[in-house]
Structure formats: structure tokens, C-alpha cells
Design a protein around this nucleic acid. Sequence first.
RNA 1: CAGCGUGUAGCGCAGCCUGGUAGCGCACUACCUUGGGGUGGUAGGGGUCGGAGGUUCGAAUCCUCUCACGCUGACCA
Length: 606
Amino acid sequence: MYPSQLLWKKTAARLPLEVPFPTVRGHPGQPSKDRTRMRMSQYFLPTMKENPAEAQIVSHRLMLRAGLVRQTSSGIYAWLPLGFRVLKNIERIVRQEQDASGAQEVLMPTIQSADLWRESGRYDAYGAEMLRIKDRHDREMLYGPTNEEMITVLFRDGVKSYRDLPRNLYHIQWKFRDEVRPRFGVMRAREFMMKDAYSFHSSFESLEQTYRVMYETYSRIFTRLGLQFRAVAADTGAIGGSGSHEFHVLADSGEDALAYCPTSDFAANVELAEALAPTTPRAVPTETMRNVDTPKQTTCEDVAALLGLPLQHTVKLIALMANDKLNIVLLRGDHSLNEVKVGKLESLADFRFAREDEIRAFFNCPPGFLGAVGIDRAQVRVIADRTVASMSDFVMGANIAKFHTAGINWDRDLPEPDVVADVRNVVTGDASPDGKGTLEICRGIEVGHIFQLRTKYSEALKATYLDENGKAQVMEMGCYGIGVSRIVAAAIEQNFDERGISIPAGMAPFQVAIAPIGIKKSEAVRNAAEQLYAELTAAGIEVLLDDRDERPGVMFADLELIGIPHRIVIGDRGLKEGNVEYQGRKDAQAQSVALQDVSKLVQSKL
RNA sequence: CAGCGUGUAGCGCAGCCUGGUAGCGCACUACCUUGGGGUGGUAGGGGUCGGAGGUUCGAAUCCUCUCACGCUGACCA
């Protein structure tokens, strides 16, 4: 017990009724007058001129420089007033749209018990990403990386009848995943803010219906946030289940590659996007097979350049180990391996790349010159990408150091592949899988993901209800996540310039900034600024008044760095004519506006 | 987890090789100056040199261990 508590216990009974403090009146009452003046002279806003050395990407640099966050440990951040305002603005829009979609907000704990996760079988499966902790009684606990188990148990215990389904609950909460390597600031942090919604249903049709509603809700959320985004079909990954879409904020720095078709609705994560088989049949051989000298050429690019051939005539070999058996994957020289697709092939679920010693043991040849001609096919499985299977007269390593083989043809020079499959990443110009055009590739930052989980968790945790016939049925389940804190970084990646942040108004920490020049010296400027500040504030607008006695350059630089969408500059010079200056954060130039009109002008732009 | 790198004032860095007074720029404080794009000046404050141990008369500097942070890779609802 703390001394203060002790003191309270001792004295509570003897406290006089007339305490020397304002009497606290119970509900109902008037809200306190807001003493938080949005004045920069009062604001905790540590901005920096120089870039912190650890920040690699632009959003991380700007978030640190603009005083939005500070790192406290690897992948763990404190949100400072300005950054917290942005976070709350995003949260507000997410919450409004979730509520409007019919979902109900709950708050679940950050700390969960290990037993809960043992029940679903994920305690061991989740691995080192889960932060495991013990309480004073040595009970095993964990800091929640996600809440499927917890919510499923809430439904299992709370819902018994089909009449009580469907329901959709969501919460906005801090989560923790002990990433091997946190990076990019709050983009890939260990602790992060997430909105998760979970829906439960008595039929798949009901799940699909809610899934569609959530898809639309997400589209509305990201639209309201003012972000350029794209929804794509997604791999379901480790979470399991069937139908799934990811929502990506489009940005060149994005970690995910997205394939989309500009002339149709097709859009998918490259991980998932199907590379169609070539439509033209394999050409008849025209060349004879021969070895060529490639003394230093260990890559397809180098070999093609040396031989004066297009890269599309080369084939690369990738050696994979799965269940202690060697698998050879053949890809066209300009293509890259899609590990997700490979993992879906029979008996390749747990594949890894072969080590160099394993490669040398089988091929008797260093990597860089590996080929599939003349190998002992009894010992390996040869998996050819669809494209490779249709090639003829191609070039591949000779299995002799410093040599490649040209003019190779299937059947004639080596047996047909054991497996022909789609194992490559699609590239720009590939035919769209829906047959309605060709694919483009762009990069995105995943900020939302919706899944049809079906019965994966409800089955494991025995979440059942009684149907119309009084028969126990397993609930259908969906889950829908949004990376709230990541959106701050993603929005900045998409909206910045050389002067700083220029995020959309919907999430900006303040809508309007007033920059009075010479506020100490000029009473006219001071009065005009205060009046305008009061006027805009009264209109319900969040205004930041830069009342610091700073030079204009300093004020402008700070306001542009932190990304206030609208700025009003008040100076003696313009005020003599009754004018002030307005400039939008993304405008090239300022415009002169009459002082009495500026409030209206700004409000028309909000 | 592997490989590499960095830890010196709030931020960016020098000093370390060759041991001997802890420095520079920005930021901060006071005053003057300036007043529409990070003004100019004067005077200041601030550092267990990541930590522990060792070598030495003496360690930011040399040695050993350790911790933290970062980069690349693998990993990643």
C-alpha cells in the first residue's frame, strides 16, 4: 500500500464536509471549460531540423522531426500530443464507420492467459512473435498479438441460439507482436494500435453478407481518410480461412507488390495473382544443344548479355529442400519465385532454400552454373513454371563450373518436368487472370485485411449455438482488421513534400493554423489573430495559433513540417489594407484575402 | 536468428589509430539586433563518453565481457 492511500484511509472519515476545494457535483453537470488552448507557445511540440540517424523512410523521419512520436524501445513508440491527435482522428473515423455498419464496440484486455491459446492450439504454433510473460504466481500470460481466441470464447459463452446471430463486435486496442526486426518507425512496430472486428454467424450466407458490408465499410473509411487505396484479393496466410481481401495504401515505398488490371476489376496481391499459362504452344526445336563458355557469368542477366540473347531465352534453377528431399524449380530468367505459390504445392508446405553444400552434393557444381539436363531424375522432383514448360531452345547452366548450355529443348534433351505449375510472380504486361487486359504492378502498404475465417476458431474453441431444430452447430466467423497506427505512417508516405508532412485534412492534427507575424510588436496583428482564432474555434474548427514570438521563417517551416492543411498569415503589411493571407498546404502560392472574409473562405474549404 | 555496423549534450557529428584539459554545428537560456521563408551578435547552461571488468601513474581512446540501437537477409493475421 502506498503512503497516500494510507493517509486517505486514516483521514477519510474525519474530513470536514467543507473541503477547501470546489465542491464536486455529480452527474448531470456542465462539461469543464476547455483550458487547452491550442497555442503553440503552450504546446508540447519538439520539432527537429535534422534527421535522426535511425530513421530510414520518409514517414519515420518526418514523424520524428515533426514531434509526432518518440521511440522508447526498439519498435515501441510514445505518441506525443500532435501525433496522438492524428491517431485519434483516424480512430474516430474508423469508429464512426464501424458503428454505422452495425458493429458494436467492446474493449478486450491486452493481457491474455496462455491457457486460452492452448485451447485453440495456437500457443505453441504462434512462435516467438508472441510476447510471453509470467505473473507473480508464475502463471503464463501473454501480451495479445490478436484476439480471435478471446472473442470466440466471449461468443461461445454469451450466445446460445441462432436467434442471437449474427453479431459483429469490434475493438480498438494496442497489440504486441515481437517482430524479429522492427523497422520503419510505426510502420512495422512491435506495439501497434489495431482495430479488429469479429463477426459470428449461423450460416455461411450470413458471413458473406457481413463480409460484403465490411468491404464497403473499409472502402468508406479509407475514402474518408483521404487516402489513395486499393482493395486486392489476398492470401489468407497463417490465420487460415477462405475469402480474404487486403486494403493497401498506394505508395512507392510499400512493402507489398500488387497486381491490378487497369481495364477490369482484377486486383490481387502479387503473392496470390495467378500467372496464366502461355497461350502459344511450345515451338519446335531449331537449335542443337551445345555448351558455351561463361567464365564469370553466374546470373541469367550476365549470360544473356554475353550471348546476345534476350533474357526470356534463359532459365534459372532454384534448389529447394522439403522433407529432406531436393526439389528443383525452373523459372524463366526474367521471372522471380513466388514462395507462397510454391508452399501450396504438394509436399512443399515446409520448403526451404537448399544450402550450398546440399547443392554441391547433388549437382557436383557450384551455384551459378546449375542445370537440369543430365541429372538423376530419380532423386529429385523437377518443377517447371508454366512459362518454362512452354519454352524451347533455351539456355541453362551446364552443371559444369563456368559453362552454360544453349539450345536446350524439353523431351529431346531432358525429360518433361515432373510438375508444371504456376510458381512465379506475375510481372507487368502479363495477361490478367480474368482475361480482360494486361496487368500492372504497383506497391502498397497493407492497412486493412478482411477474412472469412469460417469455423477455424469456433470449432477449436467449441463455439456452438442451437439451430431452429435445437441442434448444436458450429458458428461461422469473420474477422476484419485495420492497422490504425500504421495508417499514420502510410498516410505520410503518400502525402509529403520537401517541406514536410501534408496529410489529408481528415486526419490532420489541426485543420487551420494562424501565423501572426510580429505578434509581440503589433497590437493590430495580435488582435486580428486572437479574433480570428476565437471565431474559427467557435465554429468548431481545430485551430492552432502560432503565438510564439518567432520569425516568419521559423513559423512557416514548423507549420509546414507538421502538415496543417490550411494556413492564415496575418501581418502588419497586409492588415493595413485589411487583408490577410491564405495558403493551403499543397498550394503553390498564397492568396490575399480580406480579413473579414477569411473565416468563410477557410470554412468553405473544410 | 545469422552477418555487418554504431553507441561521446535533446538532434547531427568530430576526437579513438598514436592514452594525459571532452569538442564542433543545430537546439536551449539571457540580453541586444532583426522582423514575410529556419536573422546577426555577445554571454551562458547542459555530457556517469552505453554498462561492467581489466591493463596503466593516468582510459572516451588499449583489452575482455555485456547491453542497447541500427542496416542486410530470413521471418511477418
